[in-house]
């Protein structure tokens, strides 16, 4: 183990997690083999990708799509498959073909 893990005296009783939604700190983006590439110019912010994303990875601002959270996106491709825009506003591209973020 690289960093020191907390000892029992440092932990909450019965393992209660006091910080709600701290899974946000856990990166699952590395699971991805395909990356969704978003074309802002085609996107109508219909929000279909957002409602069906299993990973809360469609980022919104004021109810409009502003991008994809690659820290958490696992690359399932539902967003691209369900995008109703003609010619698709999201495409899946193999990670190997993507530039490193």
């Amino acid at each position: 183990m690289s960093k020191k893990e907390p000892g029992w005296k440092d932990l909450t009783m019965s393992g209660i997690i006091e910080e709600a939604g701290n899974a946000q700190k856990f990166e699952t983006g590395s699971w991805r083999s395909d990356r969704p590439i978003w074309d802002k110019s085609k996107c109508t912010s219909c929000l279909i990708c957002w409602i069906y994303c299993p990973d809360s990875a469609i980022m919104l601002k004021d109810g409009k799509m502003v991008g994809i959270d690659l820290q958490h996106c696992k690359g399932c491709g539902i967003c691209a498959a369900e995008c109703p825009v003609k010619g698709k506003a999201i495409h899946m591209v193999p990670e190997s073909e993507c530039e490193l973020v």
Binding site: E5, P6, G7, W8, L11, M13, S14, G15
Partner: peptide
């Protein structure tokens, strides 16, 4: 990685 520590806390209680 954590179960054992949580049991240790319970032992202390």
């Amino acid at each position: 990685d954590y179960y054992f520590e949580h049991k240790r806390i319970q032992f202390e209680a």
